[in-house]
Nucleic acid binder design. Structure first.
Length: 260
DNA sequence: ATGCCGACAGGATGTCGA
């Protein structure tokens, strides 16, 4: 089963690029972030015509996540538990049956958190802690699980073009990196890193300052697998060429193949 | 240098992203 994650930065603007990519890459499941539309504004029809079921947890203007799957979507659960007052649409989870069992997948859009030292940064850390609490509960099920999305965290200095340029940024703060590391220490595996030893492989390039042309990128979109999913990991990659297409998102798809 | 670019809402330009 091929799984993928992609922060599309508006599904309305990215609709044609997304459809073209789905035809070419043909993932069984893709989780989307920053769809930037409400549930009833998601352009379901063209994706359903390609054979994808759609589970959408949208929001006007900001955020918004979705799961598209060629297989049935079961037990669809929007929202991340732990704070009922949090009205940002940043999490949706579902179970996808495969040919050798099922896998639980989540679309994650963690907060940016900039600038540091503000409520936004505190919200980011609190959100990632809520995710850790939920992940611990999920891991206790001892099932194949893939927590995929835009974590807005650069894991290590090897995942950024120039670490010094990001020292004051919320994405590269020690507390942010520790929050991601905590998830990994719970037993989750970074699928891309598990498959690739080479450093400086990125999933995001800013629109500004010619970042793409200069390869000034960062790796912040991650697929975290439970042990039962990591045992079945067959490969992973980053569809970097999507950043060079027409009207690109600033993020590109990250994928993995699991034998499920 | 806190802008460079892009999306959004709304109807000018401020907010947000990373």
């Amino acid at each position: 089963m091929k799984l993928a994650t992609w922060n599309v930065n508006s599904i309305k603007v990215r609709q044609e690029a997304a459809l073209a990519w789905l035809k070419q890459a043909a993932p069984d499941v893709v989780v989307l972030q920053e769809i930037k539309c409400q549930d009833d504004g998601f352009p379901r029809a063209p994706f359903e015509e390609l054979g994808y079921n759609c589970a959408v947890h949208g929001q006007k203007t900001y955020n918004g996540v979705a799961i598209l799957s060629k297989r049935p979507l079961e037990d669809v659960t929007p929202r991340l538990k732990g704070n009922d007052a949090d009205d940002h649409s940043r999490y949706i989870e579902a179970v996808v049956p495969g040919t050798k069992g099922a896998i639980r997948v989540a679309s994650i859009y963690a907060p940016n958190g900039n600038p540091i030292g503000t409520e936004k940064f505190a919200y980011k850390l609190a959100w990632l802690e809520r995710l850790a609490v939920h992940a611990r509960d999920l891991l206790a099920l001892e099932e194949p699980i893939a927590l995929m999305g835009d974590y807005n965290v650069i894991p290590t200095p090897d995942d950024v073009w120039n670490p010094k340029a990001w020292l004051g940024d919320a994405l590269f703060q020690p507390e942010s990196r520790a929050a991601l590391r905590k998830l990994e220490n719970l037993g989750l595996t970074d699928a891309f890193r598990a498959c690739h030893a080479e450093t400086h492989q990125y999933s995001f390039w800013d629109y500004q300052a010619g970042a793409w042309q200069k390869d000034h990128g960062i790796r912040i979109d991650h697929i975290l697998l439970s042990p039962q999913a990591a045992d079945r990991l067959k490969g992973s990659g980053i569809d970097k060429q999507m950043r060079a297409g027409d009207k690109p998102s600033d993020h590109v798809p990250v994928w993995c193949e699991v034998d499920i």
